[in-house]
């Protein structure tokens, strides 16, 4: 159910991204579609891929916004160094405090074996016949991840060919 809502949202966002005249609005609609894709990956239980999608999406949006804005964004520096310093120190302090509180709660490295990984380690060899558990997890238990990573690589290949091809290239004169 949630998946269908997200898919419909993504379709609308993609249509908006194509149709809108304003470039920045188009980029933001595109990033909304990417965020929907990330959520869809989470619902399909491919968290690894969702993280990758989110990070790549952020990078792409930064590059695209930087590419679509012609002039530099205004950056006001003068006359408020006191406020800037206090704000920076305050946010640093908040960040450090919360990371201290959060990191204190983390368990030791590999300490409690989680239920899922316990299952993988104890039954992975019998179920998949692969002594290399990394391969067993990557291609069998987490097969969706591998499938979508292969799709990403294939898309990258096709994209490179589409950009660097000879046919369809127009002369600039």
């Amino acid at each position: 159910m949630e998946l269908h809502i997200i898919l419909i949202f993504m379709i609308f966002a993609a249509i908006m991204a194509v149709e809108i005249k304003d470039l920045i609005s188009s980029v933001i609609a595109l990033s909304a579609a990417g965020l929907g894709l990330c959520l869809a990956f989470l619902i399909l239980k491919a968290p690894n891929l969702a993280i990758t999608q989110l990070v790549v999406e952020i990078l792409c949006v930064i590059v695209l916004i930087r590419g679509t804005i012609n002039k530099d964004l205004p950056l006001v520096k003068d006359g408020r160094w006191l406020f800037n310093t206090i704000a920076t120190l305050f946010s640093l302090a908040v960040l450090l405090l919360f990371s201290y509180l959060a990191l204190k709660e983390l368990p030791n490295f590999g300490a409690p074996l989680m239920r899922v990984s316990q299952e993988y380690i104890s039954t992975g060899l019998e179920k998949t016949g692969s002594p290399n558990l990394v391969t067993a997890v990557a291609l069998n238990f987490r097969g969706y991840d591998a499938l979508a990573e292969a799709a990403i690589i294939f898309t990258a290949i096709i994209g490179t060919l589409a950009i660097a091809r000879k046919i369809g290239k127009k002369d600039e004169e």
């Binding site: 998949t128 016949g129 692969s130 391969t135 067993a136 291609l139 069998n140 591998a146 292969a150 690589i153 294939f154 290949i157 490179t160 060919l161």
Partner: peptide
Amino acid sequence: SAGFLSLSEIAIALMVAAGLFVI
């Protein structure tokens, strides 16, 4: 010994090798 794992490895290798060489 691993059934489908080997087959998918071969398919991935074919795709990656041909695709990267084409790039």
